[in-house]
Amino acid sequence: MNPLAKTLVIVGIILITVGLLWQVGGKWFPLGRLPGDISIDKGNVKFYFPIVTCIIISIVISLISYLVRLFK
């Protein structure tokens, strides 16, 4: 199998697994509604920026990529 095709299949499987875990595990770990996420409601305007959620996802992805490079 072409290395690019193999990589795309693996990335697709990982994304599907993460999506399913996010749907099922969202009850216990509320990503997107963490303390520190910015939410502003003023009249008809609502602004929401999940800064803490972005930081946690970035750390997790960095750790996963580090472990993949370490065991490669």
Rank of each mutant, 00 (worst) to 15 (best):
G32H: 09
T7F: 07
P50R: 05
D41I: 00
V9R: 12
K42N: 08
A5M: 09
W22Y: 12
L31K: 05
I10L: 11
N2L: 05
M1Y: 07
I59S: 01
I57M: 12
L63G: 12
I10M: 09
F71S: 13
V11G: 05
S39E: 12
I64R: 01
F71W: 08
V24C: 02
P50G: 11
C54Q: 12
Y48T: 13
M1A: 14
Q23G: 03
P3T: 03
I56W: 09
R33D: 08
T17V: 07
I61H: 08
L20I: 13
G12R: 01
F49R: 06
R33C: 00
V52Y: 03
N44Y: 07
N2I: 04
G36M: 01
Q23S: 10
K42M: 12
I40M: 05
P50S: 11
G19H: 04
L70M: 14
I55N: 07
D41G: 07
F49S: 05
I61E: 02
V45F: 10
I16W: 02
K46I: 06
V52N: 08
K72T: 14
G19A: 06
Q23R: 07
G32A: 05
L63K: 02
D37L: 01
L4I: 11
G32D: 10
G25F: 04
L63Y: 12
A5F: 13
G25N: 09
N2E: 10
L63W: 12
D37C: 00
G19T: 03
F71V: 13
V18F: 10
K27S: 13
N44R: 15
V60C: 14
S62R: 07
R69V: 12
V45R: 03
G26Y: 11
L8W: 02
D37M: 00
Q23I: 07
S39H: 09
L15P: 00
K6R: 13
I56D: 01
T17I: 13
A5T: 14
P3V: 00
R69A: 06
G19S: 05
F71A: 11
L15A: 14
L63V: 15
I55H: 04
N2S: 15
L15C: 09
F47M: 09
N44Q: 15
Q23C: 03
V9H: 11
V11K: 01
P35D: 03
I55L: 10
F47E: 01
N2Y: 05
V52G: 00
S39N: 09
G12Q: 01
L21D: 00
S62E: 10
F29M: 10
G32S: 03
L63N: 05
V11L: 13
K6E: 10
I56R: 01
P50I: 11
F49W: 14
N44V: 06
G25W: 01
G19V: 05
S58E: 04
I64V: 15
F29G: 00
L70H: 13
I13C: 08
I13M: 12
V24L: 08
V68H: 06
I61M: 15
P30D: 06
L21P: 00
C54I: 09
L34K: 03
L8V: 05
N44H: 14
I38P: 02
K27G: 14
P3H: 02
I61P: 03
T7C: 00
F29S: 06
K46C: 02
R33A: 07
L20K: 06
I57V: 15
L4V: 08
L67S: 08
I38D: 10
S39K: 06
K46M: 04
G32W: 11
M1L: 07
K42I: 14
T53S: 15
F47R: 04
P50D: 06
N2W: 06
